[in-house]
Write a protein that binds this DNA or RNA. Structure first.
Lengths: 350, 350
DNA sequence: TTGGCTTCCGTAAACGTTTACGATACTATG
DNA sequence: CATAGTATCGTAAACGTTTACGGAAGCCAA
């Protein structure tokens, strides 16, 4: 009825119905045009697309999701509160950036599912998947035993984990190569004459702590050395935790001459604690850690393991999509279980 | 038909219909029971709740949202990529924690809406709101002119901003009291005899940079001092940016004797850069900054402005809810426009 | 008995999409 | 001209909820 006169330009764009009667065609055709279905005239498709653009129409998420059974959303679950994950904001932000470069090609949106520190992560995740919030899930901060895996497997939700666990339901995973880091660190320190080497690990039951400690122990054994149980330092993954480690360290009767830090968030605190105790990093105590935005600006510069977080995110996203039926034809059906290598960047701290 | 025998315990719980016929009552009653509507027998309500619990039923998000027109989700928009946000490692995680303590009381979920660095933030936000993703939005990293405000106002989406802007559509906001920080910093430094005071600000058009610079200039003027234009340092909000500032600083012919850092993420890099240039922080150059997980572990300890990020999150959440009709009866209709105070924590850097 | 309340529950209509199916007009072929 | 095939579009039924509405009891008072 109303021709292309732009009279009611900004009428309340309630939905596809308004758009359809504005164009004087049926809503079925409009939907097909917008979704790129084949049986629609190219001429009308163009009209529809232009009208949608100019009126700012975007398909309602709930309606579409209800009908299609798919949301176009991938959730990255993480826990809030400052002392939980041990990864800083910048860690995840960089990973997200990589993930999104992949998702953007498929009109998928990445959202961070924020589990409150007050709520049980299993309950939270159960709620999220039962509500049908996301088509796929990325899990991080995996624990030694992680019930979340079983939950997602039972519900048959496509997911991938950034981190391993003793709980294994056959899902794909990516994990940083903490074994490689442990081995290379110990080898390097031993080659430089160190015989008493300490390590840090998270205070809770994050899986990486076990992996790291075990490999350190094994590598030391290969060199005929033993890991002193008192040289295993558990801490909260933040600067305060690093500071406390330094204090414990300095109070020891038989002090190690080197320490390997699995977490990057404790470095500044550790440095400070050591200096206060009269132990100069790099001279009185060799330190090897993980690269962070700070590590190269500490003095002495931290010898650290680095990786491209963006590339990690890309791999994570592609491996997840490979498990999703809707994208099976695009991404090869590799079943990714990959240890992501880290490169040693020599500094002056060891 | 099937009585309470738990034979088909884990039948595929497709939806409320299965739950209803499992209980042999209508889906209408089930829905009312679950939603706490008054006109349902307490006895049957208990039966329904128990069955839902044991079968793991949770209402499908899309169906509910479609019918109710509300999603129960609040989105916190942030940009991904490492150099964008300009907040330190755990800034957002702590704020989220506060926000969630409020939301938990109302069965609201907080999700982070992650805008890719590849995508225009305005387009992204437009997409999100048109899809009807969230009932309310929290915006951060506000710019000098921020079209996102107008977009949300036009669509009548409840929102609040963490940060101000010249763009003002009458929405509530909270912001850190950068004026107070500037004034207290300058006063303190002037009282200690400094006459050449520098400052940092973001390299882009984040609003806080303008606010901060203006107030610094005004306070200096009050003391009869002038802000040297060459003593305004713009930088990316990360450690590398801080390092570059230090290099510029050291190359200056008339070097300032003090500097105030608006951003906490540049501190470690700045320290390093100064030391490399033979300028000892706290002795050759007074420094006042923002508290971060690192600031208290630097040497010398940073004199910094601190705040409770968790309390900030709580205030943010409550002020947002106060603007939402559904919660108008719970939260007083205050129209929050609040400068969040920061406390000066003396260190040894000034 | 009648009428009016109250309490509880079932019925069915939305909400905004997508899509299977059928209808129409047109073209090509015999 | 009749028929088959193709291109394009309209119709209506889903998807899983919530909720307005009405109906069926049960109770009490007139």
């Amino acid at each position: 009825m109303t021709s292309r006169g732009s009279g009611e330009e900004r009428g309340k764009m309630k939905g596809i119905r308004q758009l359809a009667e504005h164009l004087d065609i049926s809503i079925g055709t409009v939907s097909r045009a917008l979704n790129g279905k084949p049986d629609v005239n190219e001429e009308t498709r163009k009209r529809v697309l232009e009208a949608a653009e100019s009126l700012g129409y975007v398909a309602n998420q709930s309606g579409r999701a209800l009908r299609k059974g798919t949301t176009g959303v991938i959730g990255f679950m993480m826990q809030t509160g400052s002392e939980i994950t041990g990864q800083g904001d910048t860690f995840f932000m960089s990973v997200f950036d990589g993930v999104q470069t992949v998702f953007a090609r498929h009109k998928l949106d990445l959202v961070a599912l924020l589990c409150s520190s007050q709520e049980d992560p299993n309950d939270y995740l159960k709620r999220v998947v039962a509500r049908g919030f996301a088509d796929g899930i990325i899990l991080s901060a995996t624990r030694r035993h992680d019930a979340r895996f079983e939950l997602l497997a039972k519900r048959k939700i496509p997911f991938i984990t950034l981190g391993r666990s003793l709980t294994d339901v056959g899902q794909p995973w990516l994990d940083l190569d903490f074994e490689g880091m442990a081995e290379a660190s110990i080898d390097r320190l031993v080659a430089r004459g160190h015989k008493h080497i300490a390590l840090t690990r998270p205070h809770d039951d994050m899986n990486l702590g076990y992996v790291f400690e075990d490999q350190c122990r094994a590598t030391l054994a290969r060199h005929g050395l033993r890991l002193d149980e008192r040289h295993i330092f558990r801490s909260t993954p933040n600067e305060a935790g690093g500071y406390l480690i330094a204090r414990e360290l300095s109070a020891l009767e038989t002090r190690p001459t080197a320490i390997v830090l699995i977490n990057e968030a404790i470095t500044v605190g550790l440095y400070r604690g050591l200096v206060e105790a009269g132990i100069k990093p790099g001279r009185d105590m060799a330190i090897i850690g993980r690269q962070s935005p700070h590590s190269q600006f500490l003095s002495p510069r931290l010898t650290s393991f680095s990786l491209s977080l963006r590339d990690l995110g890309i791999a994570l996203a592609e491996s997840l999509l490979a498990t999703m039926p809707a994208f099976a034809d695009i991404y090869p059906a590799r079943h990714a279980r990959l240890l992501w290598p880290m490169a040693l960047v020599p500094g002056e701290s060891d």
